[in-house]
């Protein structure tokens, strides 16, 4: 199966800044891996349910009880940039 990947689009989705050379390099590697991975498409799976959990479990809940939060100094201690109790980031291009 021939795999065609818009690697620049994938890199934007994954939010990794790559040069043109890197894009080409990764694009070629992914195509190779996916050609092998495409083996999964050869197995007949009609009527087969997908598995997302290895064990059949349901309803793992916690009670609605408050546990102590981190103190703010700890919460912010690893921040590349903090400002007045906030995490600080450069301005955003996109609106939500």
């Amino acid at each position: 199966m021939a795999i065609d990947i818009d690697i620049a689009y994938v890199a934007r989705l994954a939010r990794i800044e790559l040069s043109d050379e890197e894009l080409e390099h990764y694009g070629a590697q992914l195509e190779g891996i996916l050609e092998h991975a495409a083996l999964v498409q050869q197995l007949p799976t009609q009527g087969v349910e997908p598995t997302s959990h290895p064990l059949p479990m349901v309803n793992s809940f916690r009670p609605d009880e408050v546990t102590p939060p981190l103190d703010r100094e700890t919460a912010l201690s690893q921040a590349p940039q903090a400002d007045g109790g906030h995490f600080r980031v450069p301005p955003t291009l996109e609106e939500e």
Partner: peptide, 27 residues
């Protein structure tokens, strides 16, 4: 308006000082 958050035990409270109702899960 549960007492705690959806997936962790941090309090649900409007108007608290910034980043005081946070824990490893919700951060």
């Amino acid at each position: 308006a549960t007492d705690s958050k959806m997936f962790c035990g941090c309090p649900v409270r409007f108007g608290a000082d910034p980043n005081t109702n946070v824990c490893p899960v919700c951060l």
